[in-house]
Simulated assay, not measured.
Amino acid sequence: MTRPSLFVEVHILQSLPPSNINRDDSGTPKQALYGGARRARVSSQAWKRATRLEFAQAEAVADRATRTKRIAALLAQRLTQPTAEGGAGLETAQADRLTAALLEPLGITKSSKKEEQSAYLLFFGKRQLDQMIALLDGRVDELLALPEKELKEETKKLPVVSALSTGHPAEVALFGRMVADLPTLNVDAAVQVAHALSTHAVRTEFDYYTAVDDENNDDNGAGMIGTVEFNSSTLYRYAVLGVHQLRDNLTSPQATQDTAVRFVDAFTRSMPTGHQNSFAHRTLPHLVLLTLRTDQPVNLVSAFEQPVTGHSGLGPESAGRLAAELASVGQTWGTVPEHTLATYALEADKLTDVFGPSLTFPDLLDRVGDLVGAWLTDGRLPTAETTQTGAR
């Protein structure tokens, strides 16, 4: 029997002014060939990180996650803190020795290049370090009195792997974790994020800039000159959240509901920061469309396989294409969302026909939270007729 699934899809149309938010190794804005035309592209990794940082702003510092090679340094730092603050009050050398023994069951070895770092990045919650310290359970002095070999044997008996495999923070539950050397630590991601693509063809432009030496009064030359590449684009952004997987990762229905709403908010408001000071490119979307499905996710990027030309503006034309694609997928494949919610500031009757009336963004978040909560409680979504006007 297939387990019930719920996918919350986020489709966003967003226009960026001249900018270079995600560049390649030569400094050129990332691009992709799609539909035979060169498109602006922002990698999924860049937007996932931006989303994670936006999401974390609303988290208490102690509840946040971190992805780092410095787990040993962080754990040792915890152990040197006073016991009243959750540490063990150890001297630095003692903390380093106990840290090395605790981390050995995880297969975490130090990098050959930087002795203070582990060999790979590990994504974990800061509270999970506290769980590891709690495993010592008053045995710190006893363990430190042991010879090195016996210390390692004793720490191997502690459920260190379990401490990092349970109690995941929301960020790890959303974006997952893969540890090739220790699959027990793997966490299946609840979120998938597509590469953002411009709905239209783009070309790279160059900004030639100069900087003036304020103290140079001898000549009119520039203190330095340079160029930076940029483009302007209307992007189609897509992400899908598997609520069922998020529930498995978090175990708490209320935490799952809250995290789902906060993910939609964070993904919508997030923005990669490449060349941010040079271009001040932070904008808000033209359109945010949520589709809730119980069968399978559907990326609607095919709406833009033929590039938008912008005869009546790239935003409105792109929104019209998106509405037509959503309707076409439903008619052709019979895969119609259980509910459709949208926020947009574009005037077009066909948008209302397909997406329903525009909701304010706070109302959209409340509505999707209610729907996710109902599904978590009953294992099914309420029918569109039983929800307020605008949900389809």
Rank of each mutant, 00 (worst) to 15 (best):
T387Y: 10
T340Q: 02
F55N: 06
T68Q: 09
G35K: 12
L135E: 02
A93M: 06
L197G: 05
T166S: 15
R52K: 13
S302H: 04
A348Y: 10
G125W: 10
H11P: 00
L158N: 09
V261Q: 06
L13P: 03
A266Q: 07
A170N: 09
S15E: 12
A303W: 01
I21P: 11
S19H: 15
V10Y: 01
V61K: 11
T389H: 01
L174G: 06
F7Y: 15
A56H: 05
P316V: 04
A201N: 08
A56G: 12
K30E: 02
R392F: 00
L102H: 04
N20V: 09
G310M: 04
T155F: 07
G242E: 12
R49W: 00
V172Q: 14
L79F: 15
T352I: 12
A239P: 11
G330A: 05
T332Q: 12
A324S: 14
L13Q: 05
N220I: 10
P147A: 03
L346I: 10
T51D: 07
W333S: 08
A190G: 10
A50I: 04
Q57N: 07
K114I: 08
F55C: 08
Q276G: 01
G138N: 06
L90V: 04
S328Y: 12
V191K: 06
R392V: 02
A190K: 05
P159I: 09
W375H: 07
V329R: 13
T389S: 09
P307C: 03
Y34E: 00
P382C: 04
R78G: 04
L143S: 07
E91F: 07
L341N: 00
E150G: 09
G86D: 03
L79P: 06
T268Q: 09
V372A: 12
G125D: 06
T360P: 01
E148L: 12
D24V: 02
L164E: 04
L164H: 02
V243P: 08
A266L: 09
L102A: 00
K157C: 08
L289S: 00
R38G: 01
E142F: 07
T340N: 03
G176E: 11
T377K: 14
V212E: 10
